[in-house]
Design a protein around this nucleic acid. Structure first.
Lengths: 137, 137
DNA sequence: TTGGGTGCAAACTATTTGCATTCGA
DNA sequence: TCGAATGCAAATAGTTTGCACCCAA
């Protein structure tokens, strides 16, 4: 993904992911894909409407749920209070600052897993998530 | 930790972690440390009281929050719906079955991180959490 | 004795849902 | 046109909080 995405890029992207590009979805995606960022639904609602758009709370929640389901964004569950949506859908890991609540991408982090046990028949690994927790000394 | 812990073991453990051993805390810890397990607060409330005890909802939430803060148990944030408390406080990682919601320990998993970027001055890594997501084929 | 701990119910907050209205194809 | 999408408000669920009472040290 090369940020930011213009309106055409957004529409194209939505099509690629089999998402009907409505006005609201285009505006939400346009806002999310300005840059790689991690935002809770609330901030997305705020941000989209601050750009002069008019999208309801329910639509933001529904839309982000849809985007996550379709793989356009990733949900990051770190903080018990709320879900963060990550506009970077390339495989990568995160550093979480437990003091500030800040979430940071670790795009170059290379993870090697040794001694991974076998899973039951019919099970397959669908993802590996690594979260490095950091704090002030 | 060698499960299960008897009452004396629990009291001793609470002392070790600087937690005043009240009746309710002993009952909650006694229930949690019967075995290595991952439970949401709700199930802990249910389980403790099913053993014939009488502990309120608020006390379970407060107590598990305290236990987590003191490092006696670990919070596992996987599911947006609720926090899981892990009675195994030894360093280890998890496999999460996205279909069933089941959470499993991976005690032997060895994780090697390469290319970890430098963090700002004054920051230190306080933990590394790996979650392997598995699903039915 | 007394400060911390507990219980209850009410409050809170993120998220979901029901349903009438509107819109995209 | 017509099923899908949206908006609003009400509902939901997990969790937290205020406050009076109680207990461990």
């Amino acid at each position: 993904m090369n940020f930011p995405l213009d309106r055409d890029g957004v529409v194209q992207l939505l099509h690629q992911y089999n998402i009907t590009p409505t006005r609201q979805r285009i505006e939400i995606a346009g806002f999310m894909f300005q840059r790689a960022q991690h935002l809770p639904a609330d901030k997305i609602l705020e941000g989209v409407n601050a750009e002069g758009h008019n999208v309801s709370r329910a639509t933001v929640y529904n839309t982000m749920g849809l985007f996550a389901e379709k793989g356009l964004v990733n949900e990051v569950l770190i903080n018990r209070e709320r879900v963060f949506y990550d506009s970077n859908n390339a495989p990568h890991h995160h550093a979480y600052n437990v003091d500030t609540g800040e979430l940071r991408d670790l795009p170059s982090l290379d993870v090697q897993l040794n001694n991974l046990p076998e899973f039951e028949q019919g099970m397959q690994v669908v993802g590996t998530e690594v979260i490095i927790k950091v704090a002030s000394k």
